[in-house]
């Protein structure tokens, strides 16, 4: 065509994945649910990174947000309440070729699965963990969660939650061997996208705390933050989340924060006047359990049989 030589033509990828290639079943969340935005962001990132759907696994526990795998057209594991992290780590253990996303909620991760939360962060296996924090148990209809604000009325505490809530960002920053902690909000899709994008590039476990509205039970808990973006100062740094300047303008407060500075991150997260969003901490040099789990993965059958014979020899009379 046009007298051009054939081998000058563009190098077309053998497969190109569109956004639709990652779309699974019709999402059944309530209208206005913050989960939709997260789902879209994940699908966009998969498309942008051209991760083959068959090489992607979405793992979740139980709860509204844990339905996410059903709405992705990838491999998925909709597990048990609180157990997403051990399952995801098991999947990744002998399959480093798979890209793993974990969807978990404030009840799933911070309450019933809290033990796994500590240790999964410590294992630091390479995957993105998205904590959908709507401050409530939604699927079981409005019980107090570990992130429910004190005084908020729920079905289990009709006069208001009794004890102070925990902040998953702050708690995660305190875990040994933590390597990536960011916070974002569902009502700002560009920031949500940019944060998850940054997380997906991280080597190790990236923990993303997503403030997410439940229109049914906690539609108003983040209203103040939404209406006054000054309350969610943007953490900025060359190594942090890069936001389009037009979007960044929405946030009147910018706070320069070096994500390699763990001490500063701890101070930042403890502020009780504002809720900073962005990348709190990142350290790519921390040990990843993946490295230990993949030992012997490439071993040939003959070598395995030889190793086995040696093991048997040891017990011979």
């Amino acid at each position: 065509m046009f007298g051009l030589k054939k081998d000058w033509s563009l190098d077309v990828l053998p497969r190109y994945f569109t956004f639709e290639d990652y779309e699974g079943g019709e999402a059944r969340w309530c209208p206005g649910c913050g989960d939709f935005g997260v789902l879209t962001a994940v699908q966009r990132i998969c498309r942008d990174k051209q991760i083959p759907p068959e090489k992607t696994v979405c793992v979740s526990g139980i709860g509204c947000s844990s339905r996410l795998p059903h709405y992705m057209h990838t491999y998925g594991f909709h597990g048990l309440h609180g157990r997403a992290l051990p399952i995801a780590c098991g999947i990744k253990s002998r399959r480093p070729d798979l890209t793993v996303w974990v969807a978990t909620g404030d009840g799933d991760c911070c309450s019933i699965g809290a033990g796994h939360w500590i240790h999964a962060i410590r294992y630091n296996m390479d995957m993105v963990v998205m904590l959908f924090d709507n401050n409530i148990y939604g699927l079981t209809k409005m019980q107090t969660s570990p992130t429910t604000r004190r005084g908020f009325r729920t079905n289990t505490h009709p006069e208001g939650a009794w004890i102070p809530h925990l902040d998953p960002t702050a708690v995660t920053l305190g875990f040994t061997n933590v390597s990536f902690v960011a916070r974002t909000v569902d009502w700002n899709p560009p920031h949500l996208y940019a944060t998850l994008q940054k997380a997906s590039e991280h080597r190790g476990m990236s923990f993303v705390h997503i403030l997410q509205r439940c229109p049914h039970f906690t539609g108003k808990v983040f209203e103040e933050l939404q209406q006054d973006p000054a309350l969610t100062p943007l953490l900025t740094h060359d190594d942090g989340i890069q936001l389009d300047p037009d979007v960044a303008k929405i946030f009147p407060n910018h706070q320069v924060h070096d994500p390699s500075d763990h001490g500063a991150a701890m101070q930042m997260v403890e502020r009780d006047d504002v809720v900073p969003i962005g990348l709190f901490f990142q350290d790519q040099s921390r040990p990843c359990y993946d490295e230990f789990m993949k030992q012997g993965l490439e071993m040939a059958t003959e070598d395995k049989l030889r190793g086995l014979e040696q093991a048997l020899d040891h017990f011979m009379i």
Partner: peptide, 14 residues
């Protein structure tokens, strides 16, 4: 529980 979950994940992945 985690030991079981990890094993199940590993098995699920083949």
């Amino acid at each position: 529980i985690a030991a079981m979950g990890f094993a199940i994940g590993c098995s699920y992945a083949g």
